[in-house]
Amino acid sequence: MKSTGTLSVTNVSKKFRVNNNEIHVLDNINLSVKAGEFISIIGLSGCGKTTLLRLIVGLESDYEGDILLDGRKLNGPSLDRGIVFQDHRLFPWLTVEKNIGLGIVGKSDTEKKEIVNNHIELVGLKGFEKSYPYQLSGGMSQRAAIARSLVNQPEILLLDEPLGALDALTRMYMHKELERIWKKENITMIMVTHDVEEALYLSDKIVVMSARPGKLQKIIPVPLARPRDRASVEFAEMKEKVLEEFMLHTEPHFTYTI
């Protein structure tokens, strides 16, 4: 187990000012993530889960409370934190390999080439090095985006609904891939999603958030063995437990015995 990649969020609140109105987006969030953990944050839209992610990556600032990575306070974006956005955000004017190599700094050309090749292999895009983003499918674009975010070997990877735009089958396939990459890279991952099954399949812990203002409703550990079986009884029970938080679980039928 690596010692780097622990994250602690303490008493974090965030307000936005829109036309002189203060909007409370996050209210007193407390969360601690161990090194190498896979955490999912789920919640209805507008609950501030993306804002929380943007705070952690450093794209938003001006918040109350503390966010510490390995005990150090965050100060803007840094190469030790990578992010995969919902829309892949690959640069359309660059090929796949150039997109992936975009963020590599302080490396010689040969080293850079090797890093890019390794990551292309990691995400399974061999043969598409010279393709442009418009020639890729949604799933392939997201693979390239994942590779791009990993080139600097971040301690923590943040995923903002990375598979939200993919079709159901591709998404299930990407769950497997994401789990494989997470194990291979041995890093901390925090994923925002609104797909309960996705969260259950991948996470060690599921963080449920409630909306307006965004509050931490419950942290649900997922003690299921990996690789997880979506059809198992345990999986179904866990799913009910999570859905209960959203009042979406199936009510037990009325039964009686003599």
Binding site: G58, P77, L79, G82, F85, R89, F91, G103, V105
Partner: peptide, 11 residues
Amino acid sequence: NDYVEVGKVFK
């Protein structure tokens, strides 16, 4: 701005 943010993340 999405692309500019990618640049921010890569410092």
